Simulated scan of single mutants.
Amino acid sequence: MAKKGRRSTHEERIRAVQLMENGWRAEDVAEALGVSRGSVFAWQKTFREGGLEALSTKFASGRPTALSDEQMMQVYTWIVGSDPRAHTFGFALWTRQLVRDLIKRHFRVRLSLPTVGRILKKLGLSPQRPLYRAYQQDPDKVRAWKQETFPAIKAEAAAVGAEVFFADEAGIRTDHHAGTTWGRIGQTRSLSPPANASRSI
């Protein structure tokens, strides 16, 4: 079992097995993931005996894919928590086409888009609508703006009988990517620069 009685995640089990298969010591894997040493050994044993399908309840059954379990684990690691641009793609969202290109680049395997879709489904991944959030956003500055700066601006405007308007300078962005991306629920996000607001009194 995982430490503190919590349930392990799909990602933790896959990552733990991958690290063990790559030669990591169970103690190091357990410490890195915050799970018990016994869990790490149990997951590795489960994987070696039954593959990904036995390792995870999210691993969907169905017809065999063109990739081995080890290759599918690698695909999962590339996609989850990663931006396609880290793999030299010029797009910020994972699509079946990008995953297909990534598989072709690393494994020299040509797959159809439906096959890539089945692989993603087997890995427990599904299309997600990304949450756009400025990657430079500072929570403390946001709080100060909401609680101090803007109320002061609003009060000043009221005192002189003025109105406050915000101009969004990010109407057109070169890095904006609308659409869906592949990932776990609650995990997907798109990185975009913040919209700079100007004030007028």
Rank of each mutant, 00 (worst) to 15 (best):
V99W: 10
R100E: 15
R108M: 05
R37H: 09
G171D: 04
P114D: 03
T174Q: 09
R7K: 13
L67W: 07
T149A: 13
L102F: 01
K122Q: 13
H87I: 00
W43K: 05
L19D: 13
A26G: 02
A92V: 09
S68I: 01
H106D: 11
M1W: 05
A170D: 10
D140P: 00
S39C: 08
R48I: 02
G50M: 03
R105C: 00
Q97W: 00
S192H: 10
D69W: 03
H177K: 07
T115V: 12
V142P: 00
V160D: 09
R173E: 12
D168L: 10
A42W: 01
I201V: 07
P64Y: 10
F59K: 00
R184T: 06
F165I: 07
E156V: 03
T115E: 15
R173D: 10
P151D: 02
V80I: 14
F150C: 04
E49D: 09
F47V: 07
R143Y: 10
P139Y: 03
R13W: 00
W24H: 13
A152S: 11
S192M: 12
P114E: 05
K104A: 15
Q44N: 11
R6Y: 12
R184I: 14
V109I: 14
F166K: 04
V75N: 02
F150D: 07
F107I: 02
A159N: 03
V40F: 01
E156G: 13
I103L: 03
R85W: 01
E53C: 12
R189M: 12
G90K: 09
A60P: 02
V80E: 02
R199I: 13
Y135G: 01
A152Q: 15
T9A: 01
T57Y: 03
W182K: 02
F47A: 08
D168V: 03
L123N: 02
G81F: 08
K3T: 12
W145N: 12
T180K: 08
G90S: 13
A195N: 03
W145Y: 11
L98T: 03
Y135H: 12
T46V: 09
L67F: 04
A197F: 10
G81M: 04
D28E: 15
Y135A: 09
T9Y: 05
G183P: 09
I79N: 06
E169C: 09
A167V: 09
S198N: 08
P193G: 13
P64T: 01
F89K: 04
F150A: 09
A26R: 14
K104E: 15
D140Y: 06
S8A: 12
T174W: 05
W182M: 06
E53V: 15
A162C: 12
G90Y: 01
P127D: 06
L111M: 07
S8G: 14
E156Q: 12
R110W: 11
A66M: 09
Q74P: 00
F165C: 06
R15W: 03
D138L: 04
F89N: 07
I185S: 11
M20E: 06
D168T: 04
A162E: 14
H10C: 05
S39W: 08
L125H: 05
W24N: 12
L55I: 02
A60C: 02
E27P: 00
T149G: 00
E53D: 05
D69L: 05
G183A: 01
L93V: 09
N22Q: 13
R48T: 07
G34N: 04
P127K: 05
E169G: 06
S112Q: 11
L191Q: 14
V160L: 10
E156H: 11
F47S: 15
D140A: 08
